[in-house]
């Protein structure tokens, strides 16, 4: 029995879940709404002629991180925990299939579903950029690639949380709190303490928009210190492009290994 073939079977059924549970449809509609709002705002309040194509594109790239976080929650939050909470594990696990095959099959489906959503947004963005400027800057393609890397690493982290908990709802809630609050708090603490938050995935993912600055090699200000009153400084860090990529790759690798090991030994009590 081929592991890869089994992985694809798991993936197909997980993807069918996203389709039939209408998760993919809901997130797709949210994406369309975000893009539509942006299109309306641009057509009413922004004159593209007053902006460079890079700045215009950067504005399109800004909500991508939010979209990636939503996709990770929608498609990864309960992917593993749900098997325990809903007792479907009693059906799936006692089969001649390795746990690694199950987790990676599910991951593949989550990635494809998320990719559809993120690429849909980028397609609208690229069409709009081309409509106004008749050109697509290279930074758009870099930003798109980095957003896919962010998606992979964040999904991997979400799977780690999902394999830690036995309740899908708790897994989704905790992951949402961590992504929307904890990482932002960490970034804020870094501003006050002056310590570079190289350990924060959202810090690494900021290269998705930073790639529109400079010449795509991180030739922008890495560290900025602002005086705020007599005894207070705010330190803003911008990761280098390589640094952002390294942070995301490390998050992916470490989370994937931990999630696989935890799921391998997790019991159906």
């Amino acid at each position: 029995m081929n592991d890869l073939a089994q992985m694809i079977i798991i993936s197909r059924y997980q993807f069918r879940n996203y389709l039939r549970a209408k998760r993919l449809l809901i997130l797709f509609l949210i994406t369309i709404i975000i893009a539509a709002i942006y299109l309306i705002v641009v057509s009413i309040y922004v004159n593209p002629e007053d902006m460079t194509v890079k700045n215009f594109s950067r504005n399109w790239a800004s909500p991508v991180s939010f979209l990636v976080i939503l996709a990770s929650l929608f498609f990864g939050g309960d992917a593993i925990a749900g098997e325990y909470q809903n007792r479907t594990g009693y059906f799936l696990f006692p089969n001649p299939i390795k746990r690694y095959t199950i987790i990676w099959g599910k991951f593949l489906a989550s990635f494809l579903a998320s990719l559809i959503v993120v690429l849909s947004y980028w397609v609208i963005a690229i069409v709009d950029i081309f409509y106004y400027y008749s050109t697509i800057p290279n930074a758009v393609w870099y930003s798109l690639s980095l957003s896919i890397l962010f998606l992979i690493s964040l999904l991997s982290l979400t799977y780690l949380f999902s394999s830690l908990f036995k309740s899908g709802a708790i897994a989704i809630t905790i992951v949402a709190i961590i992504y929307f609050f904890v990482f932002n708090i960490v970034d804020s603490i870094s501003m006050l303490s002056g310590v570079e938050p190289w350990f924060s995935i959202t810090y690494g993912a900021s290269v998705i928009t930073l790639v529109f600055d400079g010449n795509y090699i991180g030739d922008y200000t890495h560290k900025q210190v602002m005086q705020a009153g007599k005894h207070m400084n705010f330190t803003t860090y911008n990761p280098y492009i390589w640094e952002g990529i390294a942070i995301m790759v490390l998050y992916f690798v470490i989370s994937a290994i931990l999630a696989s090991i935890i799921f391998r030994y997790k019991e159906m009590k």
């Binding site: 029995m1 809903n86 007792r87 594990g89 009693y90 001649p96």
Partner: peptide, 16 residues
Amino acid sequence: IKKALRDVGTLIETPD
């Protein structure tokens, strides 16, 4: 696991 459960049918608790 793959060899051991290859020819085994199971019903454990009431699965969902």
